[in-house]
Design a protein around this nucleic acid. Sequence first.
DNA 1: TTGTACGCGTTATCAC
DNA 2: GTGATAACGCGTACAA
Lengths: 345, 345
Amino acid sequence: MSKRVTIKDVATEAGVSVTTVSFVLNGKGGGVSQSTKERIFCAAEKLRYTPNHTARSLVMGRTNMIGVIVPSITNTFFAELVRNLQRRFAKQGYDIILSNNEESARKDLKSIDLLAGRNIDGIMLTPSAESLSPENIGLLKEAIGKLSVPCLFLDRYVHGYPHVSLDNSASAYSLTDYLVSRGHTKIGVVTGPMQLNSSANRLKGLRKRLSESGLTLCESCLFEGQYDLETGERAAEYFLQTDVTAVVAFSDIQAYGIYKRLKECGKRVPEDLSVVGIDDNVYSALLDRPLTTMRQPIAELADAAVMRLVQMMNGEELSPLPKMQAQLVERESVKLLHGKAEEEE
Amino acid sequence: MSKRVTIKDVATEAGVSVTTVSFVLNGKGGGVSQSTKERIFCAAEKLRYTPNHTARSLVMGRTNMIGVIVPSITNTFFAELVRNLQRRFAKQGYDIILSNNEESARKDLKSIDLLAGRNIDGIMLTPSAESLSPENIGLLKEAIGKLSVPCLFLDRYVHGYPHVSLDNSASAYSLTDYLVSRGHTKIGVVTGPMQLNSSANRLKGLRKRLSESGLTLCESCLFEGQYDLETGERAAEYFLQTDVTAVVAFSDIQAYGIYKRLKECGKRVPEDLSVVGIDDNVYSALLDRPLTTMRQPIAELADAAVMRLVQMMNGEELSPLPKMQAQLVERESVKLLHGKAEEEE
DNA sequence: TTGTACGCGTTATCAC
DNA sequence: GTGATAACGCGTACAA
């Protein structure tokens, strides 16, 4: 609880003016004699001077803090994402102030307000699914509009607003392609909330690949839910009563739910039902029958997002976003069906 | 990028002095006429005034920000912990600024310095294992000592410093008790870094229960490593060449590694080797043979930690820490051996 | 009941 | 080359 050392203390200790100290300590000491510099550095060292970030922020009009809002850090995808964001931002001199919206629209709005009051320099936002629903999206847009700092949507976004996200359509396309190449034609799908671009685009990609083989996704093969375990369990129950031979889960956690329910029903993957996921959580490789899934380039996503937000904050020109493609990780959760050769080219 | 609205703007708009506005907006308007209050609130609303947190921090000498340093948000235990911390702190009016040390002592030190410069009101610290090693612990202590705000160790701690953590000894005791009651006498153990109180205390608890049954832990039954998958894999390989019938992994992730390696060797849990873990990650219930493990009371841990740090920051008297006991979750990873009845009471 | 004036620790704009 | 001095936006003792 010792009193803080200010720049003034250093100045008196070194016997020079505050201005000079400030210049020197900030590396702008263009026209300061070497001896003075020495004295100042010594004094600063001796007094253990550390600049007061708050005061600096006040006068500079920037805090070097970024607000990061995600649904929940508990979700491995976001955990990995936030970890990468934190690392990258730290390298750029920014600290992150973290907020979880717990998939609640109210919390999204509250967090945005709070962060704005903190004078953060920018916001990285992955809104709740609730915020993205038709009845709430207006409020979100309004909150963003009021902001005096740039806001970059990450992963989930609102059309027309700056965002960085993965090519979800391509992911699902690849996955479907793989399934078809293994002879599957009756394919079921477990989605997340359809107002999320991730689910909407994945569905698009899946449909695209299907139609290229003259197949269509029947209504009864579509199971909409959340990106959670329980949705997977319910979906498993559901698809067991249909004639689908393979199901595409739009997230690994859903796939785990399918595994679980299937086992409880005495069924096996992939003998009784083939399953694929998206995410490649660390646990996917550890399952009894390791899960075939899409590995998401999370580090690249974080990289691109940080770079873009920094550019937005600096008013720089935006460099083009790199292609960030998920990658198929083939394991053992898909059964090879007869007639596989049909798709060979 | 509209110019920020200040308290002065509100004052002129309402036709009163800045002081009055400040009083009213901060709820201290004890002696302000109702009509004036009305005018002020209207003006504030109309102008969309939001207080400048930075300026307030500067004059108040407190930022309402807490620095949270954990090894990695990617670890499910810390993810859950940080999520709970964030929620609780938000309720108390604090935001958290997150930092991952990635198990590096250098990053710990750097983060502490950075946070101190930000004038945070307190630090919640789970240091890296490296920081806690004999050669580095001095530096950590020094950094903490220089701090002008309270620092509370969470989960991992340095003796003699304020901390909140679980009763790790009791956890391992329970687990061992369970194993012994199932007839196991040759028990192997996979630890994390031994400079961590979690590993040290768990080992203590395990030894205690063993000795109560006249058993001892032979040197060759102790496998020291990290709290990670690979350690589990290596441990599995190792224990397969011994005559232990059960192994206690000090974290679920290690147990997963054991499962994995065992399967690769054509062995099964629990038929060939019984396994128990500590943590109860969500995935533990999903394994082919669901893992028997200890459920950690993370929410309670976070609660207690937040309360204590807040008390420390306010200079209040510290309320006693509640007992936070992990709970045995019995599943299917332990084989029932002959002679089980011996331990019955 | 309301307004004036100063300080928080910096940075930045000027003169000297 | 160096040093006063004004601002940044807010809280508060003090005076009116």
